[in-house]
Design a protein around this nucleic acid. Sequence first.
DNA 1: TAATTGGTTAGCCATGGGGCTAACTATAGG
DNA 2: CCTATAGTTAGCCCCATGGCTAACCAATTA
Lengths: 130, 130
Amino acid sequence: MANQLSRLDQVFAALADPTRRAIVMRLCAGEASVGELADPFEMALPSFMKHIHVLETSGLVLSEKSGRVRTCRLSPDALVGAEDWFQQQRAIWEARLDRFEAYVMQMKKERAAANRPSKTANKTTKRKGS
Amino acid sequence: MANQLSRLDQVFAALADPTRRAIVMRLCAGEASVGELADPFEMALPSFMKHIHVLETSGLVLSEKSGRVRTCRLSPDALVGAEDWFQQQRAIWEARLDRFEAYVMQMKKERAAANRPSKTANKTTKRKGS
DNA sequence: TAATTGGTTAGCCATGGGGCTAACTATAGG
DNA sequence: CCTATAGTTAGCCCCATGGCTAACCAATTA
C-alpha cells in the first residue's frame, strides 16, 4: 500500500511534463520505436531518452529492444492506478457534499421552524445550540 | 486549450508530492486552517506553506485569510480537469483496443477461410493485400 | 500595553530535473 | 568490410524544488 503511494509519486511526476504526456498520448494510439516517438520533438536524443526512462521507471511505459530498435508500449495499469486515486478523492468529496447538503437541509428546516412561531411556542430568537 | 495543458503541468506536479496529496485528501473532507493542515506533518511551517502555495497556484486549493487565520478549501475543478485527462486517454486507449480486437477477429476469419479450402476456390496462399 | 498565536518573508543549502554535446556500442545494409 | 542507423553512456550546466532557520508582521488575549 505504501508502495502504491510512492508509485503514485512517480506516475504523477512523470505526467507533470508535457513532453511525457505527449508520449503517453502517442502511445495510447499504439506502440512505437524510440526514434518514431522522438521524431516530433526538437530535442536531442539523450534528453528524450531520459523522458522515456522516467516513463519506464514510473511503470507507465514498457519497452523491449530487438535488434537495434527499442519498441515502447503503454502499460495501462499505472494509468488506471492514478485514475483510481482521483475517483477515490472524488468519492470522498462527494460524500462530504452530500453531508453538507444534508446539513443545509437541516438548517433550512430549523430556520423554517424558527420563523414559524405558530405551533411551537417560542418567544425570543431561540437559535444557537448544537 | 494550451492553457489547460500548462495547468495540467502544475496540477500533476502538485500531486506528485505525497505531502501535497495528503493535504488534498485532507481537504476533501472539508476546509481547514493552515495550522490544522500542518499539524500532522513534522515540518517547519515555512516549508509547509510552500506546499500550500504550490497547491494554490496549481488551482487545486483556494484560501482566504480572515483575521490572522488562513482557511484553505479544495477547488474540485482542477481535480476534475486532471481526471478528465485520464478518461480521455483511456477512451483513446480503449478505442485502439477495440480496433485491435476487430483486427484480431479479421485475422481469425481470414485464417479460418485459408484453412477451409471448401467453398471459396482459392488455390495458393492468397494473403497479402490490404 | 505586553505577550502569544498564526502566518509570512527572506535567505541559505543540497538535491534533482531537464536540457545539451561528445563519444561510444551495436546492428543493418551496401 | 565499411558505413550508416538507432540507441546508449558520460559528463556538464542551470535552475526549480524541498527542506531549514531567523526574523518579522498582525491579530488575539491577558
